[in-house]
Each structure stands twice: as structure tokens, then as C-alpha cells.
Amino acid sequence: MTDHSSDNRLMHWSKTKNLMIVHMIIWFFFAYIVHWFATDLNQFRFLDFPVGYYMAAQGSLFAFVIQLFIFVKQQDGIDRECGVAEDD
């Protein structure tokens, strides 16, 4: 069912914006923050890897993949809740 009333659209866009901001923060953390501190993180070990190296070679990648599958679910939830999802 699609409902295009302006209230629904406003609610949809404000929720979509908030979701975008949350995911941009997570993205920023795994894209930049962890790598900025790579030298410090290398003092610790994870699965025998130095952590700074691990995050650049694998950790951030896995974080992005998991993040995206969760994002897809969340955004679809918002679309349905606000009645602007496409018909199945």
C-alpha cells in the first residue's frame, strides 16, 4: 500500500536522514579513525595479526559488508513503515 501524504513523506525523509547519519558515522570510524591509530593498534594482537594491520587488510572490509546488509534491512523497514515502499 502506498500513501503519499506529506506527513508520511516528512517522517520518511527525517528517518532516512537519521539512518544516513548513523551509517556515515560508522563508515567514518572504520574508514579513517581506526587507520589513523594503526601504529598504536599494532601493539595488540587479534588472531595473531597486529590489530592495525588486520583492520586495514580485513577488519574494515568486513565491517563495511555487514553494515551494508544491515542498512538495506533498516531502510526497507523505514520505507514500509512510512508507506512509501514499492509493491512486492
Binding site: H23, W27, F30, A31, H35, A56, A57, S60, L61, F64, V65, Q67, L68, F71
Partner: peptide, 9 residues
């Protein structure tokens, strides 16, 4: 490696 994956977010 990081840049060419994270861009998809």
C-alpha cells in the same frame, strides 16, 4: 584495499 571497498557504503 580499504578505499576500494568502503566507497560502496
Amino acid at each position: 584495499v580499504v578505499g576500494w571497498t568502503g566507497g560502496y557504503v
